[in-house]
């Protein structure tokens, strides 16, 4: 339950808005971070916190593509497939990932480690092809880099190749 663990965070979020409902997306992001997806229990709890009904929470969840209603892999690999990345090899990138992970788009590896998604523009058009894994961007990807990133994540849970603040 979110309240038990994050009462302070919730109070801080609620203090930012004159209308409680505004804290809905922040709380959903919190719930997803906590469980890896937005569960029914979380939706009910958030509805209670914000004086909303569960359908109001549910319909909002389904509008935003970053929120998932189903459990996904530990690492969510989201490949930008929009035109600008596609011009510089997004489709190749998807191919490499499918080969390395042995799964198709929309699938999760058997070990529940990786989920592969093709998504629309991530705002990284000058540094494609790229993907986002959980909170981090990985840019100017090559097949060799992809292999190393996946390996690092598998081994250590982290990877130094993620982007820092935007470089010129």
């Amino acid at each position: 339950m979110l309240r038990a663990k994050y009462q302070n965070v919730i109070d801080d979020l609620l203090s930012r808005y004159p209308v409680k409902q505004s804290a809905l997306l922040p709380l959903l992001n919190l719930a997803q971070k906590e469980e890896g997806y937005v569960s029914q229990a979380a939706m009910k709890e958030i509805a209670g916190i914000l004086d909303l009904t569960p359908p109001q929470v549910f319909e909002t969840v389904t509008f935003y593509t970053m929120l998932s209603l189903k459990p996904i892999g530990k690492f969510h690999v989201q490949v930008c497939r929009s035109l600008m990345c596609a011009l510089v090899g997004a489709d190749n990138l998807l191919g490499w990932l499918q080969k390395h992970l042995g799964i198709g788009v929309g699938q999760t590896t058997q070990d529940k480690m990786f989920t592969l998604s093709a998504v629309e523009c991530l705002g990284s058009c000058g540094t494609g092809p790229m993907f986002q894994i959980n909170d981090d961007y990985y840019e100017r990807l090559t097949e060799e880099k992809v292999g190393r990133i996946l390996e690092d994540l598998r081994q250590t849970g982290d990877c130094a190749m993620k982007s820092g603040p935007f470089l010129l």
């Binding site: 029914q40 939706m43 009904t53 569960p54 359908p55 109001q56 929470v57 549910f58 389904t62």
Partner: peptide, 17 residues
């Protein structure tokens, strides 16, 4: 009690989850 679920042409009316 009713929710518009999904986005765009895949929007559906339902209760919840």
């Amino acid at each position: 009690a009713l929710a518009a679920v999904g986005r765009g042409t895949l929007t559906q009316i339902t209760h919840w989850s």
